[in-house]
Design a protein around this nucleic acid. Sequence first.
DNA 1: AGCACGCCGACT
DNA 2: GTCGGCGTGCTC
Length: 736
Amino acid sequence: MKNQKPILNVAVPTPQRQLFDYVIPDEFIKSDSTELFIPGCRVLIPFGNRNLIGLIVKISQSTDFDLKKLKPIKALIDKEPLVSKILFDFFIWSANYYHHPIGEALLKVFPGNLRKGLPLPKTTTRCWKIDKSYSSDNTKSVKQLDLLSLLNSVDHKTDEFLKACFGRSTISALAKKGLITEFQKSYTKEKVSFPKALKQNPKLLNDEQATVLSKLSIEKFSCSLIDGVTGSGKTEIYLQFAELILKNQRQVFILVPEINLVQQMEAQFSNRFDLEVLTFHSNMTDNQRLLNWTKAKNGEAHIIVGTRSSVFVPAFNLGLIIIDEEHDQSYKQQEGFRYSARDLAIQRASNDSIPVLLGSATPSLETIQNCIKNKYQHLYIKKRIGLSQPPKWNIIDLKNQSISNGISEFAETKIKETISNGKQALIFINRRGYAPALFCNSCGWVMDCANCDSKLTLHKAKQKLICHHCEFTANVPLKCLACDKDSLVPVGMGTERIEEYLKNIFPTIPVFRVDKDSSKKKDFMENLHRKVNGAEPCIIIGTQMMTKGHDFKNITLVLALDTDTQLFHPDFKNQERLGQLLTQVAGRGGRGQFLGEIYLQTYNSDHPLLEKLVKDNYGSFLQDISSEREVTLMPPFRHLALIRADSTHSDKVINFLKHVRSITNSIQPQNRSINYIGPLPSMLEKRAGRYRYLFQIRTKNRSQMHSLLTKLTHQMGTIKIPSSVRWFVDVDPVEL
DNA sequence: AGCACGCCGACT
DNA sequence: GTCGGCGTGCTC
Ligand SMILES: [Zn+2]
Ligand SMILES: [Zn+2]
């Protein structure tokens, strides 16, 4: 319908795949201020019978809706768009690429406080200055006099600084006497100049590092993979390349896969640069997060270190994005808006015409494939820095070993040997808790989760049986719930059980357990680093948490207790991930002057993939994985998207997905480059009380995938779906 | 996702 | 009689 008044197309936080149209209230029309409505501004809108915060996405002249039924917006919240047009367009592009409902996606990329309608915070800092002249009669306190004389000489200091030096009470005492007064100092942009901004001199690069750095260009968009073995000094390259960017008055974003790596990376940058280094992750309060978001937007923060969601943080003048540990699956959000922060960072960098660095010792197959296709630049660092040698790989064939508590005889002597040589050992087992199942010896009953297709894990410290896939917990039964006999035994190994066993064998040696449960304690990681780097012999037991980024200098023995579970796990990325995990954990060893060794316990010592890892290297292992994906028509040789659905009734999901398949087929029949598979059960078929199924779409070209999904999701809006069925799209999934 | 409307069972 | 269970449908 035609209309002379502009129509606002607004993104509303609802799972519907559409924008909602609103009219501008009369007072704006009368005062001729309709140009205040710009895409990227928030508006308060009536929606149903409630008021919501929405985002203006577009301004159009007409609407498909009945014009008379359009409601006026209640209020315009922002005077100017929250982010630049180029960034807002990137947000919209992201929602479209992942086919996530536009309103939900667009609002979720903003900090929670902005979603609630709060204004952008002022980024001023609280400062103190001398109020009136003072003499030593005013106070007897030495601290107070020191503070006064400091302010006398420098004019003003921040509240934060004074609190740290003199304490809160000193400040408030002086304020009470009226000797000092506070004021808000607003931020003034200062030119970043080197070497002034260097706190610490750059380290001397070796030849390989220097070659890599020389191949990086600050000029335009490029994506470079730094494929450097563990301990090869990738971080130093990040730091020195970042310096070149900062010198040009531009900002640097560094993304890390996990929250416990943020602090380490932040320390690396703030130790090197006398600049504003801020973090961004989910462990901050909403206020802190919005403040750092705003400082990044204003250019007050020079460097942002953060997790996945940082890819959506605005910048004043972004010059570089670094994705550390690019292979890590944590970059892919696994619920809701299922974006990959790595892939989006590359898109964002391309929009902004800036470089992006991917770093890893174990690059993902899709990244290697992009290097082969010359989309990314492949840069190698094959040697470790300094004198440290690559770890030596070995296999322990469990077929010829007696095993006690998951540790073979041979492995146990290796641990003893390591300890008596005064060195440290790292035991890797990717399962937390005491034992993955509680089993009845007399009737064979196992305690299952009531809501999932999984067994309950016994946690001895908590004295609970816990489901690792949902919230379910249960008390540990004394007798079998099926036959009432007193014959329940824990089966299988978890970190807690290994810890108990090793503490028994080595009563005088410190044994540390590193997993999600133990690391919850505040400062756990810092304490661990301090203790372990004290160089006393010790044993560390860890899950995959241990494999990420930690730098322990004195580990010489790494022992992987269970390689077989993941080796035969059916998910398509699992073998690739096993290679990454083992290579990363092996890389924790031998980082000092002594040689590191890794031993893999397995019943499949002649498995070709293990042989590649042990006798050859990760690169050649990955080639085998690659050939298998090529023949099975899986990524990166096909583009993959899933229509995932779940319901409390399995027949409802299956029928729904059969319907989805027939719709898909009517939009686009299968051919040589477009294939459909399923409906198939998801990896854990029943989870949190819901049956999960998926329908696979594979295409040869990205554009085929995108247009098919666009048509499909559009048609799905017109069909009737049973109320128990929920569905969503997963583009470029990392698990099935 | 919310939220209202509506149509059946079991309470004061 | 009416309180509340959640199935169904709508939101510019
Ligand atoms: Zn039993
Ligand atoms: Zn469960």
